[in-house]
């Protein structure tokens, strides 16, 4: 019994991290139609920026928000300076994001050296708490809570605000959105900033669990891809569901069938791609 409870909580905590990582990836993919392959690098860079702030004695939560803001600015610049020049050429844009990912990874190696470094979580969430007869780290419960708050905030933003309506319109039909006067260019920048901010924030939130090390970007990007393909591009609900499903598959796959962990992880993605190319909740085909 304890096994199932702990592993389910593990799944939810991992799902929470995956949601913070992939929500932005999904929105950018949905609106701009490009798989932003530098998303994993933004996640890692966010973690490194957070690390530096933590080492300077900044409070954990402030460090997380500041890292998110820093990555948002970087994302905005990348969108304005690089991606906009390549507007309409999706493949070129994707390749450009891949190049940026490599540049960021090398810069991180250069600045922070290659040593793996764990981030220290907030003091208030240290230690383990008894949960139904077993012990579970408090910080992971915190991650589940943070992810839920972020999901709620994004849902309110996308469903209840004017800018959210514009995003939804853009995801559904970009040309029509443009025709009715939605400032698509500004929207692109805003969404790219938002997505990058979430990646940067996610890196810091994940830091106490994953640590930060060269290669973190490449470890996380495929997971974001799987989540988004499974859940459906550009759909917030899809990102929530995809994250939770992948969290459970990843955790239980590793626990029960460790030899087949990767098969179990990627098989659902392949099946969804074949049977339902839009993903479970998606509105546009990937």
């Amino acid at each position: 019994m304890g096994f199932w409870i702990t592993q389910s909580l593990n799944s939810l905590a991992l799902g929470g991290l995956l949601f913070i990582l992939s929500a932005g990836f999904s929105l950018i993919f949905g609106l701009m139609r490009i798989a932003n392959l530098s998303h994993g690098a933004y996640f890692m860079l966010g973690a490194y920026v957070g690390l530096t702030l933590l080492q300077k004695g900044v409070n954990f939560w402030i460090a997380a928000l500041a890292a998110g803001a820093a990555i948002a600015i970087l994302g905005g610049l990348v969108e304005r300076i690089v991606l906009r020049q390549l507007a309409g050429r999706t493949l070129s844009q994707v390749l450009a994001t891949l190049g940026i990912a490599f540049i960021i990874a090398d810069a991180c190696l250069w600045i922070w050296s290659g040593d793996p470094i764990p981030l220290t979580g907030p003091a208030s969430l240290r230690g383990a708490v008894p949960v139904l007869g077993t012990h579970f780290p408090l910080y992971r419960l915190g991650v589940i809570g943070i992810a839920a708050v972020i999901a709620l905030a994004l849902w309110l933003l996308v469903e209840k605000t004017r800018i959210g309506a514009m995003i939804r319109a853009g995801v559904d039909d970009l040309d029509m959105a443009r025709a009715v006067g939605i400032p698509v260019k500004a929207l692109f920048t805003a969404v790219f900033c938002l997505g990058s901010a979430l990646a940067g924030l996610g890196g810091v939130i994940a830091g106490p669990i994953l640590s930060v090390y060269p290669g973190l970007d490449a470890d996380m990007l495929p997971l974001a891809l799987v989540v988004v393909i499974l859940g459906g591009v550009g759909s917030l609900g899809g990102a929530v569901l995809g994250s939770i499903v992948i969290g459970f598959i990843y955790t239980f796959g590793n626990a029960l069938l460790p030899d087949l962990a990767y098969v179990i992880l990627f098989l659902p993605m392949v099946i969804v791609l074949v049977a339902r190319p839009r993903g479970l909740f998606g509105r546009i085909p990937t």
Binding site: F3, T6, Q7, N10, A13, L14, L17, I209, T251, N254
Partner: peptide, 16 residues
């Protein structure tokens, strides 16, 4: 127990 080299999360293994 064996964990993949680039496993994201050790929680799965630790709780076993």
């Amino acid at each position: 127990l064996w964990s993949p080299l680039n496993v994201a999360d050790y929680g799965t293994y630790i709780s076993q």
